[in-house]
Computed example of a mutant assay.
Amino acid sequence: MLSMLSLSMLFVSLLSGCGFKDMDKRFIVKAVGIDKTNDQDNPLRVSLKLAIPSSQIKPGQTNTFQIVSDDAPTITEAVRHLKSKVDKELDFSQSKIIIFGKKLAEERLNNETIDWFLRKREIQGMTFMALGDPSAEQIIKIKPKSERLPGDSLFLSFDQEGTESSFIVTEYLFDFHRRLSEKGLDPYLPVIRPLNDMYLIDQVAVFDKEKVKDILNPEETRVFNELSKKISKFEIETRTDTVQFALSVSKFGYTYTIDDSKTTSPVLSMHMKMRGQAAESSQSFNYSKWSLYEQEAEKEAASRYEKVLMKLQSIGVDPLGLGLRYRATRHNSEKEWEQWLALYPLLRFHIEVNINLLGSGGIK
């Protein structure tokens, strides 16, 4: 009986000594923003979006949050000092998005910058990543009227649970980390811009292994999303002297090969297949000219893909992983990487698109 009592007392003492804290003694960190400052001693500004729980959420009323920021030489030091500005423990287990400021990304964004997030056990590899323009702090301060929970608008946008847009590119922490070190696969991040009390996400920033090289415009971003994610729902506009219409694509896929038999003029041949129907047209569709409509749309589609591929080539980045594919299909150890570095600037793109126009849409 005495031994059982001793064991019970020991168990209770162990529980009282553990680090567990009740939810009412925690601040849930929903988003993290990292910016560059002009202070050489404290070059990083860390901003946290803290959710303030409410007993009930009324229709049309957004949940409240608190923003805390601190400047420090490292993220670790900033978070440690931020704890002195709040009355509860910071809980990062529900952090779903990390935003880096544009100024920081243009100067340096590498494995050293994201090291803290990789080592923090509470932060998941599936955490979304993005670039904030002009700064990460300004982005996380936005409070959309439609948002019921802090950061909810961004989460719904990126995981496609809410809106489904061909302009929105999604990137995760684990994938960004892999791209920073993988040969033949460069990083990218979606760009979030403020638009009054809303977010605008229709651009993507492409990186080398250290910093931003360029930001694609919305149309280029949409094409990049189609190529990188092979999304199946998007629109292609065809405007020629003979026909003008928008094609709503419902199925899309492609394959490609790289021919380096002629080292002075290597060729990437890409074959695409897509199906869809007319979403909008300035004229009536004539079934006798059905093949003409498909041919015109194929030319337009091939041109838009070729332009984006050539732009990425001119910038000197490879976020689509063409170099990784080249390395995987050759077996010359490190030589294939050196070969790819020499071939990529010379690569010519041959795009062949096959479009199956299913119908002209419903006219009521």
Rank of each mutant, 00 (worst) to 15 (best):
residue 74 T to D: 09
residue 310 M to V: 08
residue 139 I to G: 06
residue 154 L to H: 10
residue 325 R to A: 08
residue 323 G to Y: 06
residue 41 D to W: 04
residue 235 E to W: 05
residue 68 V to P: 01
residue 76 T to I: 11
residue 33 G to A: 15
residue 24 D to C: 07
residue 58 K to W: 04
residue 125 G to E: 05
residue 140 I to Q: 03
residue 161 E to H: 12
residue 238 T to R: 07
residue 287 Y to D: 10
residue 104 L to Q: 06
residue 193 R to T: 14
residue 100 F to T: 00
residue 32 V to W: 05
residue 204 V to F: 07
residue 287 Y to H: 08
residue 78 A to Y: 07
residue 198 M to V: 00
residue 86 V to Q: 08
residue 269 S to M: 06
residue 219 E to K: 12
residue 203 Q to H: 07
residue 151 G to W: 10
residue 8 S to F: 14
residue 74 T to S: 13
residue 287 Y to V: 10
residue 189 L to W: 08
residue 186 D to Q: 02
residue 333 S to F: 09
residue 254 Y to V: 03
residue 300 E to K: 10
residue 227 L to I: 00
residue 196 N to S: 12
residue 66 Q to I: 06
residue 207 F to V: 03
residue 111 N to G: 15
residue 138 Q to S: 11
residue 160 Q to A: 14
residue 205 A to S: 08
residue 184 G to K: 01
residue 99 I to F: 02
residue 242 T to Y: 11
residue 133 D to W: 02
residue 242 T to P: 01
residue 307 K to P: 07
residue 41 D to H: 12
residue 82 L to P: 08
residue 99 I to W: 04
residue 72 A to V: 05
residue 333 S to P: 00
residue 219 E to P: 01
residue 314 S to W: 02
residue 342 A to S: 15
residue 80 R to D: 11
residue 37 T to E: 10
residue 113 T to N: 01
residue 35 D to A: 05
residue 240 T to F: 04
residue 105 A to P: 02
residue 156 L to P: 01
residue 1 M to G: 13
residue 57 I to M: 15
residue 203 Q to E: 12
residue 71 D to N: 15
residue 56 Q to N: 12
residue 196 N to W: 08
residue 165 S to L: 12
residue 140 I to M: 07
residue 108 R to H: 00
residue 191 V to T: 06
residue 186 D to V: 01
residue 237 E to N: 13
residue 128 F to T: 09
residue 126 M to V: 12
residue 188 Y to K: 00
residue 320 L to Y: 01
residue 347 L to H: 09
residue 208 D to L: 06
residue 163 T to H: 14
residue 123 I to T: 07
residue 56 Q to F: 14
residue 329 T to Y: 09
residue 241 D to I: 09
residue 218 P to R: 03
residue 146 S to T: 15
residue 162 G to Y: 09
residue 297 A to C: 06
residue 119 R to T: 03
residue 254 Y to G: 04
residue 187 P to W: 02
residue 126 M to R: 11
residue 220 E to L: 05
residue 168 I to N: 05
residue 74 T to V: 04
residue 110 N to V: 00
residue 221 T to M: 10
residue 234 F to V: 02
residue 51 A to S: 15
residue 15 L to K: 07
residue 88 K to E: 08
residue 130 A to K: 11
residue 325 R to P: 04
residue 7 L to E: 07
residue 131 L to Q: 12
residue 334 E to T: 12
residue 258 I to Q: 04
residue 177 H to N: 14
residue 181 S to T: 13
